[in-house]
Design a protein around this nucleic acid. Sequence first.
RNA 1: GUGGGUGUAGCUCAGUUGGUUAGAGCACUGGGUUGUGGCCCCAGAGGUCGUGGGUUCGAGUCCCAUCACUCACCCCA
Length: 417
Amino acid sequence: MAITSIRGFKDILPDEVGKWQFAEATARRVFESYDFSEIRIPLLEKTELFTRGIGESTDIVEKEMYTFTDRSGISVTLRPEATASIVRAYIEKSMYKQNPVAKLYVIGPMFRYERPQKGRFRQFNQINAEVFGLEDPLIDVEVMVMLIHFLQEIGLEKLELQLNSLGCKACRPSYQERLKEFLLSNKGRFCADCQRRIRTNPLRIFDCKIESCKEIMGQGPLMLDFLGPECRDHFELVTSYLKALETPYVINAKMVRGLDYYVRTAFEMVSGDLGAQNAVAGGGRYDGLIVDLGGPEIPGIGFAIGMERLISLLSPDVGSQKIPHLFIATIGEKSRIQGFKLAKTLRLEGLSVEMGYEKKSLKSQMRRADKLACPYVLILGEEELQRGTAMLRDMRSKTQEQLDLTLAPEVLLRKMK
RNA sequence: GUGGGUGUAGCUCAGUUGGUUAGAGCACUGGGUUGUGGCCCCAGAGGUCGUGGGUUCGAGUCCCAUCACUCACCCCA
């Protein structure tokens, strides 16, 4: 029995890897134009980092983490998200002492033990961007604008920015109190799932697909109506700056975040083409997280882009396979070695060169060159070799010309570079 | 963790009420007179029919179990 990959872990094969490279390169270019710097952090952390950072009672911590004890007996976890690790590094290396503001991004895999489905995997890749040290609503907007900028550069224009405010430690409890009262007073009218959610995850009831639940929740209290004065000001400034930058958005007062640390601004980029998992990117503000993880009182905001979801939305032609500049076809052992040497010379000069390695017929080598879509084939045969020449065939025009072998590298480089 | 759908060649799929050596297209390999690609033609290679039981004279086809994939719920990027 051959060994297969683990459920929920996917190979990214050569014919789609171009899309990934394109997405990553575009993210680096765009983010750096906003003065973000890349940071690389471990995939494995002490389990406590996530239980404290993400929240003990979240689904991620309760049932989705890849946690095990290592050989020294400490509990470690494959990161289920990046923000906690970035914050840990930020605190551990005292980055805030050198610079009051840090703009960081991370590209890499996350791990969550969930049942796979469309757009959801156990190992999945994210691009994360985080800003530490700025509380002004202007930075909330800059982060969203940068995300949209990136998505436009990559060719995704039709995504919708959804915005909400989750309040803060001061105003959220009174809202939750009111929501609970409302839910309990209507308890008997909800579906079984929602009755359970009243206890486990009250905000999720807003997302219930059942018509009768939707109807009841239409009357339910919204966080936006319970924001304290500071949170309200913050939210209003965010929307007014978005308008100033002519960035369209829709307010989704029912939007919920799965991680405990989010406060105030929360946002998602949503697509209609992704099935049930419709968020390509999501983020928000997390002003208390750095303190929670043992650092100084420094605010933070950031987002994560789901790479697999992003890639699945790209049009098929982006990042298509590279084709070699030249194919070298040879006939006979002497010319095979001659061609091998020439390939090396040209590669050292930066050309991409493929050749017929096995002693196959010219026809077979030509077929392969054609399949690879090489624009030129250099034919090195016994006759040519005796004359000290080679035949260069232009595959598109079907014309060919003789080249002097000693001059061949020069001519080829000029033609193809 | 729960529910639905699907498992036949590398890929996309046929396979008649159960009946001989399981097929096609694409892809792959070789060839179509001496050293020239795409199109066309010919040939070849490639399958424990997901796996394990059962029913039957006989199972790709029927039954049971199991596994995998997939979609949805839960939840999230």
